[in-house]
Amino acid sequence: MSEPLEALAEYVLAMADDELILSHRDSEWTGHAPILEEDIAFTNIALDEMGHAAVWYTIRAELLGAEPEAYSDRLVFQRSAEDYRCTPLVELPNGDWAFSMLRQYLFDIGEKVRLEGLLSSGHTPIAHAAAKLRPEEAYHERHTRAWVLRLGQGTPESRGRMQAALDGLWSFAPGLFALDPSAEPASQVGLVPDAGRLRQRWEDEVKMTLNEAGLTIPEGVAPVTDGRRKHTEHLAGLLTELQSVARADPIAAW
């Protein structure tokens, strides 16, 4: 396979891992959300993101000539933490509702600008996938943006919690656009959008919403720039749980 396509497979893996781990975190709220309607709404977002992960794992499988369902499950259930390519932002534990809503919002805008950029990818399956995922992502943004505004402006308590969430998340957010070195060739030949441009568009948009929500954007905070191979201490424990049933009986069909 050509180097650009190999790099593309790496890029797609990172997207898939982000979606999988974020979905895992989101689903931890199921049955514990602040009100019944959010048990439905946030579980729906978790469901959508898991679906997106499946889409990207499938595209990677097709790039490598592997059988999509079996290969995707092997990637999810048989890799250890050091082989995952997710960004630390999605690994962080859920915290309170403010933290989870803001983290999801920051991710949603990141996914939005990325999907817009991928619409013009030279690799047709990716362009099609991006077009298919965009309407779902548009709905997520509608939901989480509404929450950010409401919690930011609601009560002094909710604003305080949102500010604390922002202070805790801001340094991790740029990691959404980090490229693993093995994926960089894909960017150079225009198969995927330029990361710097994505990050700028993301920042312009989220800053508008955060300002409207009455939140103060942290300044002088160094972004966490360990790339996609250095994970937080949370990922190993998360994967142990995620993989526990599958690994106990690796040849079983479920």
Partner: peptide
């Protein structure tokens, strides 16, 4: 949900539990 042993089962269980809330 977090321990469902395949991607397919994860999607299915998420949908089922969501239905129950509905």
């Amino acid at each position: 949900i977090t321990r469902a042993p395949s991607l397919r089962r994860k999607l299915v269980l998420l949908s089922k539990v969501q239905d129950e809330a509905g």
